[in-house]
Amino acid sequence: MTIALEFQDVSKRFEGATEPAVDHVSLSVETGELITIVGTSGGGKTTLLKMINRLYEPDSGQILLAGRDVMQQDPVQLRHGIGYVIQQVGLFPHMTVAQNVAVTPKLLKWDRARTSARVIELLELVGLDPAEFSARYPSQLSGGQQQRVGLARALACDPAVMLLDEPFGAIDAITRTGLQNELLRIHAAQGATYLFVTHDIREAFKLGTRVLIMSSGRVQQFATPQEIVTAPANQFVYDLLMTATVEEGEESLLDGAIGAPVLSAVS
């Protein structure tokens, strides 16, 4: 396995803040992984993500993407190779669904035929009928449909890395489950490296090949779901796991992903 992404002692503190948002983080991600990042709000998850495509810039340390320091690259070129999906979706309201998906192909100056073929392919991939949805404007879509378009738009040019910042955070529970399954399917088919920020531990454990747990800008634990459940690194991780299992009668987080016996071992 090759290393897709590497953080080397990266720190970031925002102006006017007393505590760093990201505090000496070092980690590496292999190609094709789906890393979910979970933790308390303000724990540095989004900051970590946004430093990869240089929406934020680190104060110190290095971020290597396919072995190259992102700070040494032209940000525009860099971003062409990175897919980005956010909770607010951020579809351009003045463009149709097809035009939104075609933004990056256009930036990369693909020809028309290739672009439109790709748009159709992508819409089908995210489960939207191209004939029905191509000409619609974002305001004519439901929240779930909008996020499918957002996903298609990010995937347009087969990016090596996909950054997803709480993409399903504003979507109702049933639709979310469907989207999660689709995401797993797409990830499996595409084989790119995914970084997925969420505040929902169930979602993190369901989707992640490895889960990165962050708090106060530091990595609390970075391991497979199974490892985390069997051996929580510290009290914070343990407490976090407990929040997902306390409610009686609900399907437990660990039921599907890891199995009840492990859970009981923890508690």
Binding site: L55, V76, R79, H80, I86, F92, P93, H94
Partner: peptide
């Protein structure tokens, strides 16, 4: 969020201005 989406997709500042900010 929409402006950020444009930047993150690799639009140059001029492109963000003309193709995202102005239409919005």
């Amino acid at each position: 969020a929409i402006v950020e989406a444009g930047v993150a997709m690799g639009m140059s500042p001029a492109r963000v201005f003309w193709q995202v900010k102005i239409p919005l």
